[in-house]
């Protein structure tokens, strides 16, 4: 199975040799890094029509806070004919967090892209209806960014519910992630009153 996936991914790489970096394989899954995010629509259309990736499983986004191209958009493709997965990953800088939409290739991209826009603040150019989907219209922040605190932020909208910070910042039983000292990450190191 993974051999067929590698063969297909090398076909895609051959067609777009300039835009696609060297493939990475981890746990039997192939990831193709896209160096030029502006051509994502073209590459996806090629993958769908020429290579049979007719099903877009998911679009995810990752916030590599503190690294230079801050955001990463990850496309998970699948083909019902050849039963192979393929992952396309592209990094984009924070300054112009914009990627062309792939809604013209797969309709299912519509809601996935709206969700990423809602949660991470990455804009999809050419999207027919780029509105917030999980948060309410007019919410000012992007909650899945790493610099958004877990307890939430107070908003300037007094009439909207849940605009105050959560009462227990960080949560009393929540382990703080990161590579810092474990002593400070442990739940017991948190004072509930603060």
């Amino acid at each position: 199975m993974s051999k067929a996936a590698e063969r297909l991914s090398s076909k895609l790489k051959k067609a777009f040799s300039k835009e696609i970096g060297s493939p990475e394989t981890f746990r039997g899954e192939v990831t193709l890094p896209l160096l030029d995010s502006t051509r994502i629509t073209e590459i996806c259309a090629h993958a769908k029509h020429e290579l049979g990736y007719d099903y877009l499983v998911d679009i995810s986004s990752v916030d590599h806070y503190g690294e230079d191209p801050r955001f990463e958009v990850v496309y998970e493709l699948y083909g019902y004919e050849h039963l192979c997965y393929l992952r396309l990953a592209t990094r984009i800088a924070e300054a112009d967090a914009e990627v062309p939409t792939v809604t013209s290739v797969w309709k299912t991209a519509d809601w996935h892209e709206r969700e990423i826009y809602d949660m991470m603040g990455i804009r999809f150019t050419g999207h027919p209806d780029l509105r917030r989907i999980l948060m309410w219209e007019g919410y000012p922040y992007y909650p899945l960014r790493k610099d958004f605190p877990l307890a939430g932020k107070a908003t300037e909208l007094p009439e909207v519910a849940f605009s105050k910070e959560a009462p227990l910042e960080g949560g009393p039983f929540v382990t703080t992630p990161g590579s810092g000292s474990r002593q400070h990450g442990e739940p017991r190191s948190k004072s509930v009153s603060s």
Binding site: F26, R27, E29, T31, V57, D58, S60, V62, E72, V74, E76, Y85, R87, A89, T175, P177, G178, S179
Partner: peptide, 25 residues
């Protein structure tokens, strides 16, 4: 590393995409 795993759940394909930088979370 990055992995995606999809399972056939009652409602359809429930998938988890995990981007790990190492460690416990």
């Amino acid at each position: 590393g990055q992995i995606y795993f999809g399972a056939e759940n009652p409602k359809g394909e429930l998938g988890f995409f995990i981007n790990s930088k190492g460690g416990g979370s």
